[in-house]
Amino acid sequence: MDVALGLSKALGTQFGEIWKLVGTLLMKYASSSEAVERSTSVGVIADCIKHMEEGCTPYTSQLMKVLLRRLSDEDQETRSNAAYAIGMLCIKSHAVQEVTRNYGAILSKLEPFLQVQSHRMLDNACGCISRMIMAHPDSVPLGDVLPALAGLLPLKEDYEENEPIYKMLVQLYKNSNQTAFGMTQQFVPIIAAVLSPPEEQLTPETREELIELVQFLFKTESGVLQGYDNLISLAN
């Protein structure tokens, strides 16, 4: 599995050709009777998708089938890795129809994640949903999903998933999404929290994008920033 991961990092989109050889083996381990083999293989699959990007497109149906099954795995770590993997598949694959037709099933399988007292599972579910929205916002019932997502933020543990979450939020505002605009008062305290210490909550790029959003909100509806001195100082 380490070899497959190393090759995917080295080859990027070209790894799609190698997937024909290693994918079958990884899929086999993803259905293993051993939880550690399932969780490890699903984690490797996720990173392979991440690195080969659109190179995963020809294998979308195959990957979707396996990962959907693992979203209901009895093992928490496997379920968590599957959420990360399927979010990556949604945003990297160019097989739009195959991806979006499974959105309802994915969201349904992610719902139980929200009832589990595991920060990592919650964080990966939030990241998955955010990637789904970034990829195909019109295929997500934002009026239902965004309030649920906001109720889980800010993340407590897996700060890596902050990147898709806040890039998604910035994207919605840039696209003048009315659901997002209607929830600005809910988002402001969340934004204030992630723009506060610890610094590692955000990458420099995501931080800069959020600051630009804060500056935009200050210009358009400055009243929503009242009481959040750190945001007001960033906006000026």
Rank of each mutant, 00 (worst) to 15 (best):
K50S: 04
L63T: 04
L67C: 02
K28P: 00
T60S: 15
G43I: 03
A82D: 05
C56I: 13
V42R: 10
L68A: 03
M52G: 09
C56P: 04
C56H: 05
T78A: 15
S32D: 08
G43A: 06
E53T: 09
E74K: 14
A46V: 06
D47Y: 06
R38S: 08
A35V: 13
S31C: 13
A46T: 03
A83H: 05
T57Q: 01
R70G: 00
E34T: 09
A82M: 04
S80W: 09
S32E: 03
T78G: 05
R38H: 04
L68V: 00
I45S: 05
L71T: 02
A82H: 05
E37C: 11
L63C: 03
I49A: 06
E34I: 12
D75F: 11
E74T: 14
I45M: 12
I49L: 04
L63R: 01
E77V: 09
C48F: 09
R69H: 06
P58K: 07
S80T: 14
T60M: 15
Q62A: 13
C56S: 08
K50W: 00
E77T: 07
V66H: 00
R70M: 01
E77Y: 06
Q76W: 06
A35G: 11
K65F: 07
A30E: 09
V44W: 02
S72E: 12
H51W: 14
E74F: 12
R69V: 01
Y29H: 13
S61L: 05
V44F: 10
K50L: 10
T40F: 08
R70A: 02
L63A: 07
I45P: 07
L63E: 02
S61W: 00
M64Q: 08
M52S: 04
S61I: 11
